[in-house]
Each structure stands twice: as structure tokens, then as C-alpha cells.
């Protein structure tokens, strides 16, 4: 399967923009997936049953809806602003086509899904980015939906859980995308200043303008094992510095070592971790 093989070349995936680096498994056409770590073929159904994690521990990417289903209490998720769609404000060549292709391949209107839910009974707001939608890149709608979610959470006095996966700011909306970094950060700040909790879960990959804004602004920052998280792309750094990058560079474990992540939490333990952290913060302090 040459196409699948291509999709696992990490040097290209972020640059593809329109193409999802990792497929949302489709039962009909792809009954098996090959693990990029242990190279075993795994039936899709087995992978799904194990939260998209290979028996070797490799965490495959997952769609926003899959992640919500895995994280939220059954039937508790109530979506917000799901109908917002991007226009093409700069009339950037080829952008409309990419939007339509992403809509078709993911069934989503944009690169982030937002809403309210409960996790083990704890009420919260949640946003989950969608890797299949132009690699979760942030344009005006992604910025707007996340901003609205923080404003909604502030009004309702709810904590926010954010699962990030993104190639960064979306080039096709130029400066308007860049400004979303400031807009979302300001909303995070307001929410936080009101004494409310924001937990980030960094997933593979989280880079560029998203790393340089709301992905790094959590009170608590968790990461999935081996997730790539960084500001600049590895290839750009190699070209700029003409240095060989150290092993494990920009992986979750590297961030933990350098003090930028609170904990690495495998998928099987995420729900319990979020539940615990939410409940500790829901009880109020003793002073």
C-alpha cells in the first residue's frame, strides 16, 4: 500500500496541508492498518477497540468525534457552533477546493469540534481539533469557535478541556489566521482570570501558531506519548541551523524533560486522569 506508506513520512505530513497525515479508518476499503512503529498489520476493528493504540503502544491519530466518544460520558456531548464554516476571506488560490475536500473526507464543517459534556459526571466544555481537516490548521473559524467556547465556559463557570492537533496557523487566511492566536489567547486569559480551569491535552502533531498560543496556555498541560509538539518544523530547524537534531527532539517526552508538559498520559488512562483533575478542581480550595 504505497499511499499508506507515504502518509507515515513525518517530514512531509505537516506540509501537505490539505491531506490528512493519518487516515480516519474506513472499514470498507482499509481493513488493516500498518503500525509505523512495530510495522505489524492491525485489523481496523481491533485498533478501534483499543482506542486506536497498537499493542506496541503506538498511538494512532484519531478523529475529533472518536476522541469525544472516548472521553465524554455517553450521550453527554452537546455541540456548540457546529455549523460555522470558513469563507475564503482573502480569495486565496485553491483554498475553496481544499475546504470542500476536507469537508467531504471528514464530514466536519471545520478543523475543531466544540461543545459541553460530562467526564465521569464532571461538567466541562471541550474542544477537540480534527487532524483530517487541513491538518487541524487554525483559520478564522477555528479561532472563533475556540474563543466562543472559552467565553461560553466563562459565562457558565465551567472548566475547559482542549485536545490539540494542528499544523499551525492556516496560511490561506493569512493575517486573519495569525490574529486568531491573539484572539484565542485573550479569551483563555479572561477565562483563567476568573479562576477557572483549563486543561490541555497535546496530541500528535501540535505545532506552529497553535503551540505558540492556546496549546501552551493551560493550567495543566498533558500530552500523549511520543506526540510531536513544537513551534518550528523540524525540517526548517535543520535547514536554518545545519545541525543534526537530537533523538526524540520535539516529542512529548522531550517537552516533559524540559519542563513544558505536566504529564504524559497514555490514551487508556486519559479519561481517569481528566476525571480526577476535574473533580479536584470542582471542590474549591480550603483557604
Amino acid at each position: 500500500m504505497p499511499f499508506l506508506k507515504f502518509r507515515y513520512q513525518p517530514k512531509n505530513e505537516l506540509e501537505e496541508g490539505g491531506r490528512s497525515a493519518e487516515p480516519v479508518p474506513q472499514e470498507e476499503s482499509e481493513p488493516e492498518q500498518t503500525c509505523p512503529n512495530c510495522h505489524k498489520s492491525i485489523p481496523i476493528s481491533a485498533l478501534r477497540a483499543n482506542m486506536n493504540v497498537c499493542s506496541c503502544g503506538h498511538h494512532f491519530r484519531m478523529s475529533a468525534r472518536q476522541r469525544i466518544a472516548m472521553t465524554a460520558d455517553e450521550g453527554s456531548f452537546c455541540e456548540l457552533d457546529g455549523s460555522l464554516r470558513s469563507s475564503d476571506p482573502l480569495m486565496f488560490s485553491g483554498y475553496q477546493e481544499k475546504l470542500r475536500a476536507s469537508e467531504q473526507s471528514t464530514g466536519e464543517n471545520e478543523g475543531v469540534v466544540c461543545g459541553e459534556c460530562r467526564i465521569d459526571g464532571n461538567p466541562c466544555c471541550i474542544f477537540v481539533m480534527e487532524p483530517g481537516f487541513m491538518m487541524g490548521s487554525m483559520g478564522s473559524v477555528v479561532g472563533e469557535k475556540i474563543t466562543r467556547l472559552f467565553e461560553h465556559a466563562l459565562e457558565r463557570r465551567l472548566p475547559v478541556i482542549g485536545c490539540t492537533v494542528s499544523g499551525g496557523a492556516r496560511m490561506q487566511e493569512g493575517l486573519l489566521s495569525l490574529m486568531q492566536m491573539a484572539k484565542t489567547s485573550a479569551a483563555v486569559k479572561r477565562h483563567g482570570d476568573a479562576g477557572l480551569l483549563y486543561i490541555v491535552l497535546l496530541t500528535d502533531p501540535t505545532t506552529g501558531g497553535v503551540t505558540a498560543s492556546f496549546a501552551m496556555e493551560g493550567d495543566i498541560i498533558l500530552a500523549e506519548p511520543n506526540a510531536t509538539v513544537g513551534f518550528a518544523g523540524a525540517r526548517v530547524i535543520e535547514q536554518t541551523t545545519r545541525k543534526h537534531l537530537p533523538k526524540g527532539f520535539q516529542r512529548a517526552e522531550f517537552l516533559l524533560e524540559h519542563g513544558f508538559v505536566d504529564a504524559i498520559v497514555p490514551r487508556s488512562e486519559q479519561r481517569a486522569a481528566l476525571s480526577l483533575l476535574l473533580s479536584i478542581h470542582s471542590e474549591g480550595g480550603v483557604i
Binding site: 503551540t211 505558540a212 496549546a215 501552551m216 509538539v229 513544537g230 513551534f231 518550528a232 518544523g233 526548517v236 530547524i237 536554518t240 541551523t241 545541525k243 537534531l245 537530537p246 527532539f249 520535539q250 522531550f254 524540559h258 519542563g259 513544558f260
Partner: peptide, 12 residues
Amino acid sequence: CGIGAEERGQGA
């Protein structure tokens, strides 16, 4: 865009 910049949290 450098190794040290990433180690010291450019994004953060």
C-alpha cells in the same frame, strides 16, 4: 528556529 529555542519553549 533553533534547537535551543525549542528546548527553552519558543511556543510557550
